[in-house]
Design a protein around this nucleic acid. Structure first.
Length: 160
DNA sequence: GCCAACGTTGGC
DNA sequence: GCCAACGTTGGC
């Protein structure tokens, strides 16, 4: 069981939309490192912090879980889609995605400031200056601390 | 709106 | 294979 953090801009797709959707194909990832995490390391049931980026204040808004194996991102084949990639083909897809399923909202939103101020989160990738990766692995201990800051007590229940 | 960080592209 | 130019992310 691994732990992750995924970023999303709430103006585009936030925790509200995630909750409403229930399950959402995480399309539009066009970064090899992030793709490789999905392809090689994610497993169904893995938990991920749902992070709001490009907003005031940025921070963790909820928890989701991996709900599918990796499969080709259909938007790469769609000429009209924003994420169309002419160098990709159906027999040799370049980009993959997984589905995420809504788990819960954080009882309290955890702003980035608060995470930075928490000594126990030192070394967390998301807190590193200049980190632009939209999917990052999170250590179990860090995941637990963020949940604690969020007022989410029973981590065991999430892992089911 | 600025800009630091960093990934990608393409000329050589 | 190097590296400059460029584009994007995302905090501030």
């Amino acid at each position: 069981m691994k732990y992750w953090l995924i970023k999303s801009e709430p103006d585009v797709f936030g925790i509200d939309e995630m909750e409403k959707a229930g399950t959402e194909p995480w399309d539009g990832i066009r970064n090899y490192q992030a793709r490789n995490f999905m392809r090689d390391e994610m497993a169904i049931g893995d938990l991920a912090l749902f992070y709001h980026s490009n907003t005031k204040p940025p921070g963790v808004a909820g928890v989701v879980k991996v709900a599918s194996r990796p499969y080709p991102d259909p938007t790469q084949f769609d000429k009209k889609a924003k994420y169309y990639d002419e160098k990709s083909s159906e027999d040799k897809p370049r980009w993959l995605l997984v589905d995420f399923e809504f788990v819960c909202r954080m009882p309290h939103y955890v702003p980035l400031d608060e995470m930075k101020a928490e000594g126990r989160l030192e070394g967390m990738l998301t807190l590193r200056k200049g980190n632009r990766l939209s999917i990052t692995p999170v250590e179990k201990e860090h995941f637990a601390v963020v949940c604690e800051l969020a007022g989410l007590d029973d981590l065991g229940a999430l892992e089911g």
